[in-house]
Design a protein around this nucleic acid. Structure first.
Lengths: 226, 226
DNA sequence: ATAACTTTGACATCGTGTTGACAACTTTTT
DNA sequence: AAAAAGTTGTCAACACGATGTCAAAGTTAT
């Protein structure tokens, strides 16, 4: 049974997460500030740490950095507020394995937990740079380049691309995208998705009229091909 | 006679369901909170449990999880309100076999009950990839290949094929197809079915004039042979 | 305040679903 | 056995919904 430590100062968040994670058979421990969380992690050697960025005593960066120094193998998922998006990069550079922006759906987090745990067990690391034909996507730096030249992807576009890449070869419905990329608390209509897909295609497809990476499945959704 | 347990706190809902299910020859038992429902199920070993998500004492998740631990084979259909849709997947992950969103039509629920019972009895789950001679059908990806080459199936064609495969060897009438693939609230004429069958045959039969997979039974319907 | 991004709605376009007509076929009736 | 009646196969035209595209309005970050 995998042991997960949550380091987060919002008690409601901890309660909810704990309930959901325990329901799925994980063993869950929690700490409400950075200092205690750090010590708890050292003592317990968890299989995964879920780490809030804003914390009393020691912030998420520090904890992340310290933890990775002591136990380099421990996987860390960071929780960040939307307004902290710019700081995701820093977090990833300090060694975090993934991040989830608040407010997030439980399912979203669960999916990432599963993914991170699976990678940790197989010894595979989160790939830092993803190559896609002439395109290069760097998840740590949140940047992309096409034929060596920087391509400007907005953060939404980035998240969509990330979601696609994590599901290469699967068919993803517009609802899937809305639920996972946008989150459970916003309800844009599905046309919004189309617009973003169109923009993404313009940026990453060689021939926009014959997309080879983001393919439409009429009436079903989109499929990403690497 | 199949035994069904309903765990649901809205008495009107229980009364209505009970009436409808008994009219169809099912034996029906009910409980009005999670705790009692759980105990009842343990004691009675029903063929199917219909489980509301929001319940007094123990919520649907808990009951689902507990039940599946005790009697892993028992099929469970979850009832959820629309606003709880995000949590559906959660339920499915905990082991529910299907879910129906309130408000639902009785026919809809009945159809699902039949489907779940049939699967439970034959022990057969719809396989993800189905092989059929030179044909390969991937239900998860909504895609098919013939001799390795991608075949373009529309969503309607897919649903029809799926329905056929689930009933391999049975004779399926046009009305069956209309009711189950199209749904109870749309009324195309039966010629529409023929047209779709014709298209399907063109796509999956080796010799369209001598169909070996989708066979016509004059005056009755079609039979699918694997 | 400005710029960048997101979202929405309008419109064009495309793929799919549906229908009806007719031919081919099967069954029933004479 | 032939004719009649009914069923099914096939096709093309039309209807309809889904998607692509764009501009404008709304929102957020700087």
């Amino acid at each position: 049974m995998e042991k997960i430590i949550i380091i987060e100062d919002e008690k409601d968040m901890v309660t909810g997460l704990k309930f959901n994670l325990e329901a799925r058979g994980y063993q869950v421990l929690a700490a409400y500030d950075g200092e205690k969380g750090y010590r708890l992690a050292l003592k317990e050697h968890p299989d995964l740490v879920i780490l809030d960025l804003m914390l009393p005593k020691r912030n998420g960066y520090e904890v992340c950095k310290l933890l990775k120094e002591e136990i380099p193998s421990v996987p860390i998922i960071m929780l960040t507020a939307k307004s902290q998006e710019a700081e995701i990069v820093t977090g990833l550079e300090l060694g975090a394995d993934d991040y989830v922006t608040k407010p997030f759906g439980v399912l979203e987090l669960l999916a990432r937990i599963k993914a991170v745990l699976r990678r940790a067990q197989t010894g595979a690391k989160t790939p830092e740079v993803y190559r896609l034909g002439p395109l290069e996507i760097d998840f740590r730096k949140h940047s992309a380049r096409k034929e060596g030249k920087p391509v400007d992807l907005s953060s939404r576009e980035f998240e969509i691309l990330k979601y696609f890449i994590e599901r290469t070869g699967e068919i993803v419905s517009r609802e899937d995208l809305l639920n996972h990329v946008w989150g459970y608390d916003s309800f844009p209509n599905t046309r919004t998705v189309d617009t973003h897909i169109a923009k993404l295609r313009q940026k990453i497809e060689a021939d926009v009229d014959n997309p080879r990476h983001i393919v439409t499945h009429h009436g079903v959704g989109y499929e990403f091909l690497g």
